[in-house]
Design a protein around this nucleic acid. Structure first.
Lengths: 111, 111
DNA sequence: TCCAATGTTCGATCTGCGTCGTACTGTTCG
DNA sequence: CGAACAGTACGACGCAGATCGAACATTGGA
């Protein structure tokens, strides 16, 4: 089970991360990884997110997220398992993942 | 000294904030506000950031940042004072401003 | 060996948005 | 009042990036 090349977390800049997360599709992908765990490009967890894009487009978004240091891709036989780099991202950018988890402003108002 | 209309911090979503911060110019503006305090569109603190854009473009970016809940604009006579909504942003998105403060990955590596 | 399944790469297309210039608004001061 | 200043609004333009389809690569199984 080899890994696709990815940046060391210390070399990742917030600028690149922000650009990566600015796209609604990629934000959905990261949220799905955070909530439902890993998936492959054809998995149900991904399909349940409601993102309906071509597989080439999905491949593109995964590449952007990987270059931003947010996810990892492991080659597992015929498929590629996509994983959120949870601990590393939390260490490099504390609180970031928690922010993404709360899309509903109403809950913030209730705090 | 009236205030230009701005969203309540509880109604601000992370999606909009990320879109606002994804632009390099706006990121520079927020960093300048965080480091050097308030400024007006013609102030030295702003000019020192090195952003060389037309005033209509600057006005556009300020509007985007204001709609994202990150800054506040107070009308002060002939000029408009731009302020970072520091405490509110920190309350709504803890850790966000700290992330923006550290653009150099080398420092993160040294931690 | 050949085929099916899973992604990637490449080229083309198209849309969003960052940028600019100009005109306009509002404020202060002479 | 009128001129100068500070910024906004608007329309136009151009480019980066999101999207797609098709061709290609790689692996596993029949």
């Amino acid at each position: 089970m080899t890994e696709v090349i990815e940046p060391a977390i210390e070399t990742v800049t917030i600028d690149v991360v922000l650009s990566a997360l600015a796209d609604p599709v990629r934000l959905t992908l990261v949220r799905a990884l955070d909530a439902a765990g890993d998936w492959t490009c054809g998995s149900d967890a991904l399909r349940d997110t409601g993102v309906t894009i071509g597989k080439s487009t999905l491949s593109h978004h995964i590449k952007v997220l990987r270059h931003a240091g947010l996810i990892r891709t492991r080659v597992d036989g015929i498929r590629r398992l996509v994983t959120l780099r949870h601990d590393e991202v939390e260490q490099r950018f504390p609180g970031l993942l928690a922010m993404l988890r709360d899309p509903d402003p109403a809950r913030a108002a209730a705090r």
